[in-house]
Amino acid sequence: MSTLAIPASRLDLDRALFMVGAWALALVWLLPLAYAVWTAIHPAAFETRFEPFAPLTLENFVRAWNAAPFARYFVNTILLVTMILTAQLILCSLAAFAFARFEFPGKNTLFALVLVQLMVMPDILLVRNYATMGSLGLIDTILAIGLPYFASGFAIFLLRQTFKTVPRELDEAARVEGCSWPGLLWRVYVPLAKPTMLAFGLVSISHHWNNFIWPLIITSSVETRPLTVGLSIFATTDSGIEWSIITAATLITSAPLLIGFLLFQRQFVQSFMRAGIK
């Protein structure tokens, strides 16, 4: 009954404050990005002058694109991301299947060792992995950027969780029908794990599209450098490149993920939720 005791005006004020807070935070949050977009789509003269009718231009993008081999960097990044995701899905499905459906000695120890990677990632073990790549003769190759990430502890963990929810009756039925183990994995488990794979795929793509330190160390030529490394070199050359061009280049490198995110916002958010929580 005490609801009646709270005057309606106080509730309204409460709600209004809540909304003002939300919008204020959102605008502050968008400010750096909005500022970058402003700079990129206007001539250099308007870099810091905010006139609502300043002339728009795409010239900064054109000049940025021509100032560095961004096309090549794009190809490298796309190759890299595709290669990593493909390898991860194949290798980790196989391993996760074994962990979910087989009994063997040392299973728990092995699984614990897989989980170790969630804490001690290859991102930290730079010095030794560089030496390993050296002895494999892989330095400055796209394969070397991706190789340490192929066996993802995170993917094995996620897929194992999903595979465990598949009813045992299903695979017993399939086995009785004469389906082989790999056939069972491919025909029964993989189709049922598609949502998990999609979720992991988005996380993996955005992570490796954005990854920086390891690619920076292991690559040294235009033919192998991904976008992030290319952008960092472009932006730090200090050769008097105008800010409007650097911001344009920055937006170019982020554009595919940004556009992908804006188009598939719901899937993105749900995928990240699923990957983080399951």
């Binding site: 750096p32 990005l33 500022y35 970058a36 700079t39 955005s206 599209w209 954005n210 920086f212 976008l227 992030t228 952008l231 960092s232 932006a235 800010w243 650097i246 911001t247 920055t250 937006l251 490198t253 982020s254 993920l257 940004l258 992908g260 995110f261 993105f268």
Partner: peptide, 13 residues
């Protein structure tokens, strides 16, 4: 969803 390198450029400016 932005690469941290890109974020760094934006904030540098």
């Amino acid at each position: 969803v932005l690469p941290l390198i890109a974020v760094a450029n934006i904030w540098l400016f």
